[in-house]
């Protein structure tokens, strides 16, 4: 009935040449411009910046890594940088 999800559920083509944010197992986080990818979610990002000590500290620190290959199996989270912004508690009224 439902299609067996053989094909990737994420179409990375739409992010090509766009800046994306990637988190890894272990907690590292980078942003970079998507240049290439494969079915295993291995990525090639350019102009990569690693976000150091995210979450815990409010002031963002980065270091430049340039052109990088990211191993798909270690990627835990992927989202476009466009439309990503910190906001005030959106659940405040509900809780």
């Amino acid at each position: 009935m439902d299609k067996p999800k053989r094909e990737a559920i994420l179409d990375l083509a739409k992010y090509t040449n766009e800046r994306i944010r990637v988190k890894f197992t272990g907690g590292r986080e980078v942003t970079g411009v998507l240049k290439g990818y494969d079915q295993l979610l291995n990525l090639v990002l350019d102009e990569v910046e690693e976000n150091l000590q995210t979450e815990s500290d409010a002031d963002p620190q980065t270091r430049k890594l340039g052109l990088v290959v990211l191993r798909g199996p270690t990627i835990t989270l992927l989202s476009p940088v466009d439309g990503f912004e910190e906001i005030a508690n959106p659940f405040a009224q509900q809780e």
């Binding site: 559920i9 994420l10 979450e55 990627i75 835990t76 989270l77 992927l78 989202s79 476009p80 466009d82 439309g83 990503f84 912004e85 910190e86 906001i87 005030a88 508690n89 959106p90 659940f91």
Partner: peptide, 21 residues
Amino acid sequence: EVYQTNAEGDRFWKVKECYIR
């Protein structure tokens, strides 16, 4: 149309779309 919340529950982000392993 995602609202992301950190583990401590005190910081929030708006994310247009995301992929989660």
